[in-house]
């Protein structure tokens, strides 16, 4: 009797597992992942010397304010939004005159990020991207400031309830 019950539980669990796998493979995982990349400058200066820089949104500022590496003000230098199909790589995404990144969709929201500085590969990072969980690659910059490359998953343009994302020309 106990053996029969255990078998029944195993069958039920296997069916559930198959259902989840089927759901995952049904298209949700094969759709392109939309990624927003921001180059942010962190400084203690109240105003950026470049008028084209704009303050980052409050939510990101709040997150950055909780990190151990923090500055008083953050300015968005550039923003790019790209859609990457499964297995596809978007290369040469120019964030500034010196900073370029490559992005590759590894599947299941995992993205490979290659960071270049002055044309030289600095690092390769593989991690799942999430809508409310940015991946931030950062380091020191001149005059005790910081650069930050913020990578966040976003909804496709048609589904975005917030303000539309426009890549600078």
């Amino acid at each position: 009797m106990k053996r029969y019950r255990f078998t029944r539980i195993l069958i039920f669990a296997a069916v559930c597992l198959l259902g989840v796998v089927a759901y995952e493979g049904s298209g949700a995982a094969t759709e392109p992942v939309w990624v927003k990349v921001q180059l942010v400058w962190g400084t203690d200066e109240e105003k950026s010397p470049d008028s084209r820089h704009k303050a980052i949104d409050d939510e990101l500022a709040k997150k950055l304010g909780k990190s151990p590496f923090r500055w008083k003000h953050y300015f968005e230098v550039n923003r790019q939004t790209v859609a990457i199909a499964l297995g596809e790589a978007k290369t040469g995404i120019k964030m500034s005159s010196h900073c370029v990144i490559d992005l590759k969709n590894l599947g299941k929201d995992r993205v490979e990020t290659k960071l270049y500085g002055k044309g030289k590969l600095l690092s390769t990072h593989k991690e799942a991207v999430q809508k409310d969980w940015p991946l931030i690659l950062a380091g020191n910059a001149e005059n005790e400031t910081a650069w930050l490359v913020v990578i966040t998953k976003v909804d496709p343009p048609g589904k975005q309830p917030a303000t539309p994302v426009v890549a600078p020309k």
């Binding site: 950026s48 590496f69 230098v77 550039n78 005159s97 010196h98 900073c99 002055k118 969980w133």
Partner: peptide
């Protein structure tokens, strides 16, 4: 706070890879 931050630092002061200006150009 739901975030992951990877902070790059120099192991040697004269590294060509970690020259601040290598990435930190804030000119779009």
């Amino acid at each position: 706070a739901k975030m992951t931050m990877v902070w790059f630092y120099d192991k040697s002061d004269d590294s060509e890879f970690t020259e601040p200006a290598a990435i930190a150009s804030m000119d779009p």
